[in-house]
Amino acid sequence: MLMIKAILRPQKVTNVLSELSDAGFPAVTKFSVVGRGKQRGVKVGDIYYDEIPKEMLLIVVNDEDKDDVVNIIAKNAKTGEKGAFGDGKIFIVPVEQAYTISSGKAGL
């Protein structure tokens, strides 16, 4: 199993979630975060913003589903703006075990 962590622009999340659900991946945890990437924030006029609002999605999938989920997220989160910073980042980490609390069953 793998956990896919995706940090996205807030305006892209609805479409990403819809496409994931349509593809058979409805189980997602979403929360609001702030941060900055390599660009170290954004300067607009005289104002510097070093905490940019983003959304983080957490999705645990079987190993064989990784590429499908990553491709869905990347395709639907991209703005398409040439040289655009801030479209997001996807991280993939191993998950040793998962348990459903109500049933006590192991696995997804």
Rank of each mutant, 00 (worst) to 15 (best):
V44K: 13
E19I: 00
Q39G: 10
K38E: 13
F25C: 02
G45D: 07
D22G: 02
G35H: 07
K38L: 12
F31W: 15
K30D: 09
F25L: 05
G35W: 08
V16Y: 04
S32V: 12
S32E: 15
Y49S: 02
L20W: 03
D46M: 05
G45F: 05
G37S: 10
V34C: 10
D46R: 11
G45N: 07
Y48I: 14
F31R: 12
D50S: 12
G45A: 06
G37D: 09
D46K: 12
K12R: 15
G37R: 06
R36L: 13
F25K: 03
V44Y: 12
D46E: 14
L20F: 02
T29Y: 06
V13G: 01
A23S: 14
S18T: 10
K12Y: 01
V34Y: 14
Q39C: 09
K30E: 15
A23T: 04
T14R: 11
V42G: 01
A27Y: 08
V42L: 15
L20M: 03
R36P: 04
G35Y: 08
A27D: 09
R36I: 02
Q39E: 15
V33Y: 09
G24Q: 04
R40K: 15
S32A: 14
N15M: 06
S32F: 11
Q11T: 11
P26Q: 04
